Computed example of a mutant assay.
Amino acid sequence: MNQMASVAARPQVLLSSRGRDWSHLYADLLAMPGGPVTVQDSRQTMLSVHVGAPLRVRCRIGDGPREDRLLLHGDIDILPAGASGEWFDEAPTTALVLRLAPDLLPRAAAELGLSRASLAPQVQLRDPRLVHLAWAMRAELSASDASGRLYADSLGMALAVQLLRGEGAPAAAADSGRGLAPAQRRRVAEHIAAHLEDDLSLDALSRVAGLGATQFKTLFRHSFGLPVHQYVIRRRVEQAKLLLLQGRMGLAEIALAAGFAHQSHMARSMKRLLGISPAQVRKAAG
């Protein structure tokens, strides 16, 4: 929310993607103090999702009329890049503020076959798909074992596609169960296996397959039976298990070698998928 020109008091950051390696989408859960908020010439497309009890708000987007409205949990305000807006919250509240990197909407538009990526300002939008994505982002911010960059990339692209579809962009044609071609599947699987210790991104894996990110996500799931980020976590758990059974490395070293952020991340992922801890895997090896 660093693009606010004025606010009655500074919001308190409750959760944030800052410090995480999110490349196309940024999120902050903010405790707003109430009173005036002004955004001037936003550099990024911004979404504000109301969290909590109903709240009376007065707002104006650009040169439009002032509106008095009752904001409900899950209501979304959209402020496109370059637009300005004014709000007056009658009481303290909580907002999940999402900001899209400038290149995200154009990339989504290209994959949808659109010549331009334009959005209109909207206030008090009710969109179940957008809200579902927003709550997934909030859960990722608060998770002790965050899924990481791949998951954030996937959420960001899904958000951009849904925003454009809300503007009348055509939905993708039914895929009828088709997956990646055998050569694509092999290249992607080999690339993931060879780079588990790296910070894999959706963009990089899409390029390996020679596809756009949106199409790649769909075809990958048909081919492997899992979303990309879940497949990568499973492969990392498998690699960590193999290294544990070999017994030649310490737990912290194994976690990094398998691509986990730290030893605790490895332990939580292994417990969730295998039902046992790294120490129990090592003990079973005798």
Rank of each mutant, 00 (worst) to 15 (best):
L159Q: 01
F216W: 08
A267L: 12
R20Q: 11
S6Y: 14
F88S: 11
R129I: 07
R235C: 11
D153E: 06
A255E: 10
Q3T: 13
L164F: 07
L200I: 02
A279W: 14
R207V: 08
Q12G: 09
G82W: 01
T38S: 15
L112F: 05
L112Y: 04
L244H: 06
L196E: 06
M157P: 07
A143Q: 07
M266C: 14
E67C: 13
R126V: 15
L155H: 01
A117Y: 02
V39I: 15
L196V: 05
L256M: 12
P278Y: 00
A267M: 12
L25C: 07
S206D: 02
L251P: 08
L72V: 07
W135I: 05
T94P: 00
Q239S: 13
G34P: 04
L202S: 04
S269W: 10
L25R: 00
L96T: 02
A240T: 12
K283P: 00
L114Q: 04
P80H: 04
S118M: 12
T38V: 14
M137L: 15
C59H: 09
L211M: 13
E140S: 03
A91E: 12
D77T: 01
R69W: 08
P182K: 13
L30K: 07
A134V: 04
P54F: 03
L71V: 08
P36R: 15
G286M: 14
G148M: 08
R20P: 03
Q40S: 13
R116K: 12
E253I: 05
A31P: 06
L242D: 14
F220I: 10
V232T: 09
D63V: 09
G74Q: 01
D63R: 10
R107N: 05
L164P: 01
W135Y: 10
A194D: 13
